[in-house]
Amino acid sequence: MELEVRHLRALCAIADAGSVRKAALQLGMTQPSLTTQLRRIEGAVGGLLFTRGQTGSRPTPLGHSVLSRARPIIAEMSALMAAARDAAAGAGGARLRLGSLGGRVVTGWLRRLHARLPDTDVAIHIEVSAGTLLQLLATNQLDAAFVHETEGFPLHIPPGVEQRVLMTREPRFVALSVTHPAAAHPVVGIAELADDAWIVDPAADHEWSALQRAFTTAGIDPRLVHVRDTTTAADLVASGEAVRACQPTAEAGPGTVLRPLYGDPLTVGLSLATRPGALSVPETDALFCDLADAYRSLAYANPTYRSWLHRNGGMLPSP
């Protein structure tokens, strides 16, 4: 077996994610498939590349050696592909490559960009992992990215990547069925939801870790439901089968309500990450203003979030 670039990407994904399961989710593979591929790679190089344990997968000395050679190759290949795409885009006009985590603000951001830059090809790459977006940015595959950083779990910022803060501390609300007893309260204590199942996206950065910390602080140990499909998650909440943490700019679906959590135990920081040289300072300023305007529009249009903002000083980014 000869190692290919896809094999090197798999090894880097396992090392970065810290486990085969998480790496498989990021790569769009099943865990058994990635495990089989890893065994074949280890057979080809003649030794174990990772130790497996309850805390995840860690590179062995041989693994560190292989990874130190694999990463420059991956970076060069990414740069080559990005340069080729840039050259192709250059023949057809200006191009702006953006990345973002999912959320309603993306639509408003794009709408403003299209209106301001009608002759620019704006491409958007949606991820569930801010870490992945930052790596794409650092390897010249994106020009800018809208990222979230879970409080208490700082992101690894690649060298050269800069951040411009949109919100220092955005709260996470909880989505629950209109029939839930807590739905009658304007603010919900997390302990009131101790008997509920909580929906968790296993691929989202630190979502489970942040929830676990909040649960531990509240002295509860609720059930978890791992769901990646948003439609299924919405149906489970509406039916009363589960609750879920959500962005405060989210829109309550049929049969559901959004409520702030007492004491805001779950918060994230929002920022626009850029790579120096990808955009000029005026371009970056305009891009940030479009994002901030889209965010403010959603925040003030949402009665629940608007009330939270009024109770907490109404701090939103200036235009």
Rank of each mutant, 00 (worst) to 15 (best):
R228G: 07
S239N: 03
L38D: 14
R9E: 12
G63I: 10
T150I: 10
S129E: 07
L258F: 15
Q141C: 08
P265R: 03
A182W: 09
A294M: 08
H185Y: 00
A145F: 04
E4N: 08
L287P: 06
L134G: 01
V174P: 06
G103L: 08
P181K: 07
V5P: 06
G160Q: 03
T230D: 02
T267H: 04
L224S: 03
A238I: 13
L48Q: 15
T30M: 07
E149N: 12
M1T: 09
P59A: 11
A115W: 00
S307P: 01
F153I: 13
T284K: 12
Q54I: 01
E76G: 12
G56V: 02
P72L: 12
G131P: 01
A292Y: 00
T304H: 01
A123G: 04
R58V: 04
T35A: 11
T217G: 05
P317K: 01
N140M: 01
G313P: 00
L27H: 10
V122G: 02
D205P: 08
L193W: 07
R104V: 12
Y295T: 11
T107S: 14
M315N: 09
A294Q: 00
G99N: 06
D205C: 04
K22C: 12
R97S: 05
V161C: 11
P265H: 13
P254D: 12
S68A: 05
P118C: 00
V178D: 01
P202H: 14
E192D: 14
T35G: 04
G99R: 10
R244P: 07
A245S: 11
A44Y: 05
R6C: 09
E162N: 13
R40A: 14
L113S: 03
L279A: 07
L261V: 13
C246M: 07
H125F: 10
A292I: 05
L96F: 09
A250H: 09
V147I: 15
C246R: 05
R275F: 01
N312Q: 02
P265V: 09
E283F: 02
L211M: 12
M77A: 10
R111L: 07
V225A: 14
R259G: 11
H185T: 05
Q163F: 13
I190Q: 13
I41C: 12
T217P: 11
Q31G: 06
H114V: 15
A210M: 08
I199F: 09
R296Q: 09
A203M: 02
V268I: 13
S78G: 08
G53N: 14
Q212T: 11
G152V: 09
V20N: 03
V268H: 06
L96Q: 11
H310T: 10
V161S: 09
S239F: 05
D201K: 03
L211A: 14
V45A: 01
V187W: 06
E149W: 08
H156C: 09
M315G: 01
E149Q: 15
Q135T: 03
T179Q: 10
V5Q: 15
G102C: 10
